Simulated scan of single mutants.
Amino acid sequence: MPAATHPAPHAGRRPPPPTPPTRRSALTRAGGLLRACHPAPAAAVTLCSAVLAAAVGRGVAGTAVTAGAVAAGQLSVGWCNDRVDLARDRAAGRRDKPLVTGTVRPADVTAAALTALLLCVPLSLACGTAAGLAHMVGVAAAWAYDLWLKKTPGSWIPYALAFGLLPAFVTLGLPGAPWPPPWLTGAAALLGVGAHLANVLPDIDDDLAAGVRGLPQRLGARRAAPLAGLLVFASAVALVAGPPGPVSPYGLSLLALTFALLLATVRAPGRIPFLAVLGVALADVALLLMRGAGVG
């Protein structure tokens, strides 16, 4: 799914000189590659996909292949994002970025992104042709975000498409290739767009200075923050009210906790709002499990 955006150069901030390449141990380079792939969202999306696959009856092998395909796609998107943003990250002085500090070489990140993308294709198709195509469309949307759409008013579209297709990737691998129910697709798409807005919040000023004018940058932090919370809460409502049967006490508690969490974090500094969205996503998956999935 679409990866995080990064700060761009801020007016008046003097960019540091590029870090000269140095000889690094294999372990150091591997650690740099890991940090460059956006490990937190990649792990969260992979875990959610695996749990959902297990919940709908994909079995051990099917769940493993599903998780592998999603992990490969997420890795490719994360590495692509950091490689594309290298010039802006250098100009912004992002010393937390392995490419900026020279821990890992640009060529290594490029190779890793392309390798993960190539692995994603057979792993996705191993889940079935329809499922594989759905997943590859989502991954292609995420790459389109990294390469171009993040700078446009349509920056939200890849998130809606990629997240919305993720449940389809899971269910289309079942016998008969069923599509997920509309409430699940809608909930996933809402969560994706909310995550996009929340993730960009800390970087809006720097992004604008660099000419990155996606939807959240055009809205500004004052409007993007409450909209992010509203979309994530709407996603939780869809998951609670969508499945057949009465709403469980856990579902009602989830709504209350989601509302309180988003209210407390939506204007918090740094990546806290985005991490809160990831927490809500994991809680949503737990809700699906407790309600027997109701997906396939």
Rank of each mutant, 00 (worst) to 15 (best):
T103E: 10
R105F: 01
P106S: 14
V109Q: 05
T110H: 15
A111K: 03
A112C: 04
A112E: 02
A113F: 04
L114K: 06
L114N: 06
A116Y: 07
A116R: 03
A116Q: 11
A116E: 03
L117Q: 06
L117E: 00
L118P: 00
V121M: 04
V121S: 07
L123V: 02
S124W: 06
L125S: 00
L125K: 00
L133R: 07
M136E: 14
M136C: 09
M136L: 15
M136H: 12
V137N: 08
V137G: 14
V137Y: 01
V139H: 02
A140H: 06
A141D: 05
D146N: 12
D146M: 05
K150D: 12
K150F: 07
K150R: 15
P153D: 06
P158E: 02
Y159S: 09
A160M: 10
G164P: 01
L165A: 08
L165V: 11
P167H: 09
V170F: 10
V170G: 04
L172W: 00
P175V: 15
P175Y: 11
G176W: 00
P178K: 00
P180A: 13
P181Q: 07
P182S: 11
P182H: 15
L184H: 02
G186W: 04
G186M: 04
G186Y: 11
A188W: 03
L190D: 13
L191H: 15
L191R: 12
V193D: 14
P202S: 03
I204H: 09
D206M: 10
D207H: 07
L208Y: 00
V212R: 13
R213A: 15
G214F: 13
L215C: 14
Q217M: 15
L219D: 10
L219W: 05
R223N: 13
P226T: 14
L227P: 11
L227A: 08
A228C: 06
G229N: 10
L230Y: 14
V232A: 07
F233N: 12
